[in-house]
Amino acid sequence: MSEEQENMTIIAFSGDLDKLWPTMILSSTAAATGMNVTVFFTFWGLFPLVKEDVRITGKDAMTKMLAGMNAPGFQGAKLSKMNMGGMGRRMMRKVAKKGNLMPPEELFDICQDMGVNMWPCQMTMDLLGIAPEQMRPNLGVPVGAATALQMMSKSQVSLFI
């Protein structure tokens, strides 16, 4: 092990299935390499962290509508292109299974076991009306842009996905 631990920070902006994969693959691999990893989930990136049994989040008609367009949890994540009403997503998951690629929700669990920091964005939670109890357990305390930037300034690797 090197003397000083390296840091990697990912801004998980997209909630798309095909973008969650690289986020989770890079996070778990960086953690396996001894790096201190932080993923800051913001905007659409927050929806995969919402529990799948939470039917709808939001505090008013518009935020509820936005939530309706962004199904909760990793299972709700769509493909960024050719989603075709969910057919693309199902095909992608099938292809991944056939290719022995672990689904992103399982990689997320592995990341958590390896100590990857999962930070929800407080501002997005407030904006979209997502309550802490509607989200997965064992996440970090919700933080803001300054905290994310502080971590990024110490990071050898910073990504926006």
Binding site: I25, T29, A32, L101
Partner: peptide, 14 residues
């Protein structure tokens, strides 16, 4: 064997 990226590295690290 028969495991895709990132599993070989994760299993090795573990």
């Amino acid at each position: 064997k028969n495991q895709s990226c990132p599993m070989p590295v994760l299993l090795t690290a573990k």
